[in-house]
């Protein structure tokens, strides 16, 4: 076991193994740092910026920064929480996140974060995106309008030769996650299941699946995201 070090988050004394990413180390100490793109066990990408914290006064993503001895981390402070709320709102307006008609509603990480941050209305104007919906795979539907470019599927849904089913296309505001047409054809049940599961929003849906959990029993109906971590 590697060396234990001390650090603090918002003044709270914490301990963790050296080299552990801040977001995980915080979790071990009962502190929730919100994430969207992060998946435990996969190389972090730091693309959603939700987990931004201040480390010794500098903005860093806590999913990509390892803790070190004596680190001073600011997490639940007004400036940071305002950035996070803005990020959630930006994601809402940049796509079509019409919750009432979404299969993932109630179990969606983005929606859950909006609940957590009590987003009554995004402060930014909606863009009402009209991007393509790809239903070419026999097993899944890929709705680009709901995608938040977290890269989770790109990193997690990989075939035996190490090739990803999903990749980015274009750049900037035109960035999209696309499915390799040929690989989409031969995707198997388990991969499709995992793709829907790993998508934090409703951008990847398994065909013929949805609305199978009654309202009131869905993942985030009764308890806020992160409440399982916070003590």
């Amino acid at each position: 076991m590697s060396k234990l070090i001390k650090f603090n988050i918002d003044g709270q004394e914490c301990m963790a193994e050296e080299g552990r990413y801040i977001v995980d180390a915080a979790k071990d100490n009962g502190v929730y740092i919100p994430t969207l793109c992060n998946i435990p066990g996969l190389k972090p990408k730091g693309s959603c910026r939700m987990c931004t914290v201040k480390v010794n006064g500098r903005l860093m993503t806590s999913c990509t920064t390892p803790v070190s001895d004596g680190m001073e981390i600011e997490n639940h402070i007004e400036e940071i929480e305002n950035y996070r709320k803005m990020i959630v709102e930006l994601m809402f307006v940049s796509g079509n996140h019409f919750c009432p008609s979404c299969e993932k509603s109630g179990s969606c990480d983005l929606q859950a974060l909006a609940y957590r941050y009590q987003m009554m209305v995004p402060r930014f104007p909606y863009t009402f995106s009209q991007k393509d919906v790809d239903g070419s795979s026999p097993l899944i539907i890929k709705d680009q309008n709901r995608c938040i470019m977290c890269k989770r599927c790109i990193r997690a849904i990989i075939d035996n030769e190490g090739r990803s089913f999903f990749t980015f296309k274009n750049r900037g505001i035109k960035l999209e996650v696309i499915m390799d047409k040929e690989m989409g054809q031969r995707m198997n049940e388990a991969e499709a299941e995992k793709a829907m599961e790993i998508c934090p929003v409703g951008a990847i849906l398994k065909k013929e699946k949805g609305y199978d959990v009654p309202i009131g029993q869905r993942k985030f109906d009764m308890k806020p995201i992160g409440s399982e971590i916070e003590n």
Binding site: K45, G46, S47, C48, R49, M50, I87, L90, M91, V93, S94, I148, M149, K151, F168, N170, R171, G172, I173, K174, L175
Partner: peptide, 10 residues
């Protein structure tokens, strides 16, 4: 913009 970060993309 490369589009990777939500902030700079949107």
């Amino acid at each position: 913009s490369c589009g990777s970060c939500s902030t700079c993309r949107i």
